[in-house]
């Protein structure tokens, strides 16, 4: 990794890119969103404001019960907020779950093709397009395999290809790598960073893993629990390519973790 002026230069250029992008309408805009699951219960989310610029990679971290996943469901349009406004630039954001959630009666290619079918892509085109998307996630030649013949990492990559097949500019990810082993996760981090840069996606990435957030995000948003709200956020100006071991990543992760511990300790008494 190069040090000193080079890093600063890259950081400035990245910021410039973000400034240019921010003149376009936001990819995701959340204004004053509160959400209550049950009447009489404390709100899950309370007055959350968050804007994601087009092409931006935002990571949400926070303790359990801070409403990270609820927020993601609201952005995905699977739930309506009790109050406030959620606006998304893409009609139907793509969403990836912690489980690959592939349909086991379909092949890898069939899973991707289902997303294309839902978009109204014609039969002949679905085949070639699915092949192309599987190549994007480095799975060329595996399209004919059944889900149970794929490893955990490969399944999650098929899920990513399926999400890409939705052709949405917004990709929502709900702890997608939480169930994977560390080495597979490293590989998928790199894959995701590459795909993100290639496709110009706006990504909202929910995770428990602070290091993962610092590794991937351009911005890390820390949420607090009961009620769920945004506590603090960090701009991450560590240049890509990063790895989970990059010094910048670990020092930022340490800082976020400290803040997270403060937030969690508040609930202990």
């Amino acid at each position: 990794m190069s040090a000193g002026p080079m890093t600063t230069e890259v950081a400035i250029q990245q910021r410039d890119v973000r400034l240019v992008r921010s003149r376009q309408p936001a990819a995701v805009s959340i204004e004053g969103v509160s959400h209550i699951f049950e009447r009489g219960r404390p709100p899950v989310l309370d007055g959350v404001d968050l804007t994601v610029a087009p092409g931006e990679f935002v990571c949400l971290v926070g303790p359990s019960g801070c409403g990270k996943s609820t927020l993601l469901n609201l952005i995905a349009g699977l739930t309506e907020p009790t109050s406030g406004r959620v606006t998304v630039s893409s009609a139907r954001p793509a969403l990836m779950f912690q489980e690959p959630a592939l349909l086991p009666w379909l092949t890898a290619s069939g899973n991707v093709e289902l997303a294309l079918r839902a978009r109204g892509v014609g039969r002949a085109q679905r085949r070639t397009e699915a092949e192309r998307l599987l190549a994007v996630v480095n799975l060329e030649g595996h399209g004919g395999k059944r889900v149970h013949e794929l490893s955990g990492g490969m399944r999650q990559r098929v899920a990513l290809a399926r999400a890409l097949a939705q052709d949405s500019s917004v990709l929502l990810m709900d702890e997608p790598f939480a169930a994977l082993d560390a080495i597979t996760r490293d590989v998928l981090h790199q894959e995701l960073a590459r795909v993100w840069a290639e496709q110009g996606l706006s990504v909202v990435f929910v995770t428990h893993n602070v290091r993962e957030a610092a590794r991937l995000g351009q911005r890390v948003v820390l949420m607090g629990s009961r009620p769920g709200r945004i506590v603090r956020e960090w701009q991450v100006d560590i240049p890509q390519p990063r790895t989970i071991e990059s010094p910048g990543v670990s020092s930022l992760a340490t800082e976020i973790t400290r803040e997270l511990h403060v937030e969690i300790s508040r609930h202990g008494h």
Binding site: S2, R194, P241
Partner: peptide, 17 residues
């Protein structure tokens, strides 16, 4: 590959990675 602002040296590191 659309990664903005990477110098040649960084690119080589990136490619190797």
């Amino acid at each position: 590959d659309g990664r903005p602002g990477l110098a040649v040296a960084d690119r080589d590191v990136a490619d190797r990675d």
